[in-house]
Design a protein around this nucleic acid. Structure first.
Lengths: 351, 351
DNA sequence: CTTAGCACTCATCAATAAAGAGTGCTAATA
DNA sequence: TATTAGCACTCTTTATTGATGAGTGCTAAG
């Protein structure tokens, strides 16, 4: 038994109906709602076949049928034609245009827009520094025993670490160390600074320490450990309450499950960073690695800086998600973010 | 008709029962559950009086009675004796102890702990810079037309603004401006930098511009406007899903209302910054300025730096909140945060 | 002043019945 | 041979009804 055109048409109609209504549909209602050119009896037979093939599921004996994860997969991979992308691209571009200076605010806005346009819950991961190159390191003397390390990444994201030293280090000494660090570390990716390099830098710093002895030792210890510390990942999310519009979440227990899953940033990070290969990735229902969202689908896209993927964004919603609008919206936002990052967070000067 | 001891005892029993069970209670059940020394008939009469006085509400004719907002207010102000504070203080101190270096992580942890201990939704506002003094300003040349302003506040919170200039400014010129800014601005609160001061600084900068003409003009324009920009307030929240444990939120519509209210950071900011006077503030039900949470109570506390209130924290839950544990927990966390901020985010050197 | 007793109210819950949507099978039809 | 009409049957959903139980307010006795 093969999947002929008529079967696909019927399946498509069922999927569209279910995405729209959220309720199982039977042969008769389907034949009235969509002009499929055959009677409800024929549809009935085809639906029975589609069930045997694993594309449809009966919630119970006389309730009509519902698309399976396999059906959505087929739909997304082979049936769906992705249009409107440029429409959304322009729309998003217009909204995002206004003053994009600070990465945090920019991502927060993007997240809000994504949730508003799709009506699902949006998720965005801030750029990962380890994947981006270091442009400038500066040790700023704050006062006595406090030193601020300012790291400026190639994408002009700035990160600070405040060090508490047991004993003060004079400013000129700090500048020397600053210069040395710059010389050695500029252009490197944070995750490429390995142990041997750290040891080399340490030795060189020791060579300028002369009168400051173990004080520099202490600085180095904190500094090196803080270089490793950059796996904190910021997550932005919006539109949690959008999920409550769906009848699949009319049960408090379901809401709680979803909410406590999404509230835990670790989950989101794991979810979004699961695969970094594809520019666009869709996981449907049980394909998800977490049981808590086995009735959800996730559409994610990457965003890049200098050709390297530095972050991800996406939407999560029920498996009966409106893929045909959500996918182009995610794509369009991802394209916009790519461009804005390249333009606004990159130096005009070639480096 | 006055509020004698017996009435207060009965009211207290009703409040405790309702906080515990979440269900209206009648005279007979009350007399069985609590040893009040009088019969259910007497309780019945007293309850009738308490209703006339506005302390009790009948959901419907034969459903028992429920405390009113006025009752909770009386309870919180006059009946409740706040103990266990030192118990919670020590408990929180122990949990918070581990490495407190970065403000963001610290507040995120605090927020999680607050939600876990109280079983309500926690809200924390990050320190407001305008209220804190500026310690150090540094202009860091990033590359060509980009300049990074690093502002270090007295509490060692660091903030960066990246400026995009139309034309580059040489490094030594930047340093001069840095020094000037430091000289003029150090020790000031950001909200005290008024227009006349900005004009004075502008004049002085003009005096060193000589060969750089309108380039400095441009820098100043961006710099001054960015000094004003510090009203972005970070909000941390945790334990949203705790609200779903309460029967008052077994309705999707109620959940949506609460969720979309809390998801909007502006609301939280307005809510928490409503009154900055008291160290501890409790608003009950309709006392809240937002209708969306007119069935919630809010317990907030301040935290300070150098005696000045710089932030707020609190929990929000149903009006039948367990005040007798939530209040001391909020107080205890606020005390802990005060101490930690004084200790870890302050210079050891007197200034 | 307190309490027992009683009539009355109202939400909740379980049982029952009717309605409606859907399925699968069979037999007739193009 | 593929399609369709017809029909018996299934099963959820919704409305109805009645019983249950918690609660109230009033009255009269202690």
């Amino acid at each position: 038994m093969e999947l002929n055109k008529r079967k696909i048409d019927i399946l498509k109609a069922i999927i569209h109906s279910y995405i729209e209504e959220g309720e199982a549909i039977g042969s008769r209602t389907l034949s009235k709602k969509y002009d499929l050119g055959v009677s409800s009896a024929t549809i009935r037979n085809e639906m029975s076949d589609l069930e045997d093939l694993g594309y449809l599921i009966k919630p119970h004996t006389s309730a009509g049928r519902v698309p399976s994860d396999k059906a959505y997969r087929l739909y997304v991979d082979n049936i769906l034609i992705d249009k409107n992308k440029s429409k959304y691209y322009k729309q998003i571009k217009k909204i995002l245009q206004e003053d994009i200076n600070e990465m945090e605010m920019f991502l927060r806005n993007s997240s809000r827009i994504l949730a508003q346009l799709t009506k699902y819950t949006s998720l965005i991961i801030a750029p990962q520094f380890k994947k981006s190159k270091l442009k400038h390191v500066q040790l700023v003397p704050v006062s006595g025993r406090k030193v601020l390390i300012v790291m400026i990444m190639q994408n002009n994201i700035v990160k600070n670490v405040l060090l508490n030293l047991k004993t003060p280090i004079p400013e000129n000494q700090l500048n020397k160390i600053s210069n040395l660090l710059n010389e050695k570390l500029t252009g490197l990716r944070l995750d490429m600074i390995d142990l041997s390099m750290k040891n080399r830098i340490k030795k060189e710093i020791y060579s300028i320490r002369n009168q400051y002895d173990q004080k520099i030792d202490e600085l180095m210890k904190v500094l090196i450990s803080s270089l490793n510390e950059y796996d904190k990942i910021d997550v932005y999310s919006d539109g949690l309450n959008n999920m409550l519009n769906f009848p699949e979440y009319n049960d408090t227990e379901k809401i709680r499950e979803f909410l406590s899953f999404v509230e835990d940033k670790d989950n989101i990070v794991k979810l979004l960073l699961k695969n970094t290969g594809e520019d666009l990735d869709i996981t449907i229902g049980h394909e998800n690695i977490f049981d808590e969202i086995s009735k959800c689908s996730l559409i994610t896209a990457t965003y890049k800086f200098n050709g390297i993927t530095v972050g991800k964004l996406g939407v999560i919603g029920p498996t009966r998600m409106d893929y045909k609008t959500a996918i182009p919206i995610v794509k369009a936002l991802s394209n916009n973010i790519n461009e804005i990052i390249e333009k606004n967070f990159k130096d005009q000067i070639k480096e």
